[in-house]
Amino acid sequence: MAITRADVEKVSLLARLQLSETEIETLTVELGKIVAYVDQLSEVDTDGVAPMAHAVEVSNVFASDEVKTSLPREQALANAPSHNPRGYLVPPVLGG
């Protein structure tokens, strides 16, 4: 499966990455190599092997429904690029 320039443009749009012309070209090649590397797995005969949904053979890990202390608000907001004493501030959200 080859990675095309259009693939890189679409993925970068979804990831909200603004790439320059050169970056798109470089990434098309590099992402292509990564996919080709992983694609080697398709050489393995997987007939009769159930698809794996998770890498670890563990299931049913639960926590009990108990309220624990949350972060103090100042700490929660501390790393935000912009905030007021109550909340995070972001550019106006359009279109609902």
Binding site: A63, V67, K68, S70, L71, R73, A76, R86, G87
Partner: peptide, 20 residues
Amino acid sequence: SKLFCGCSTQFGAEPNTQTC
């Protein structure tokens, strides 16, 4: 509490006081 952490799900609390 929330789905994946112990923060309260109580409605109407002061903004951003129930996060972790």
